[in-house]
Amino acid sequence: MRILITIQKNSVAPRFDLTTEVLIALCEGQKVLGKPRTVLMTRPSSEELCALIIKENINTVICNGIEESHLQYLAWKKMRVIDSVVGPYSEALKAVTGGFLRSGTVLPGAKQGDGK
């Protein structure tokens, strides 16, 4: 399974359309195979991001805020989109491979003071 997470620093990026960096991970069962790679985009663009998702044969997209048109497009392309995810992308990756990541999840580590 190929997973793409829109990221901003260490977190899932707040908006799909304003994302300039993504993380692509290859997973098998609950394991992440190899080291996930990051891709920097030249500029924030939903269209270019959708094209990248198709090109990379992604199965699951994890993001936070996403507009209806892009959500529909990705769904039409048979992509699984888990949106409104808030928190560190490492936790998002852990949760999705564990099979318990759902849309609208506020992950551990999202809140100030978590884990301290």
Binding site: S11, V12, P14, R15, L18, N64, G65, S84, V86, G87, G104, V106, A110, K111, Q112, G113, D114
Partner: peptide, 19 residues
């Protein structure tokens, strides 16, 4: 779409998703 209990102590950017 976020309940206040979930949003508390989270950085505003990630909840408001503004531009």
């Amino acid at each position: 779409g976020f309940a206040v209990s979930e949003a508390k102590r989270v950085r505003a950017d990630f909840i408001l998703r503004c531009n």
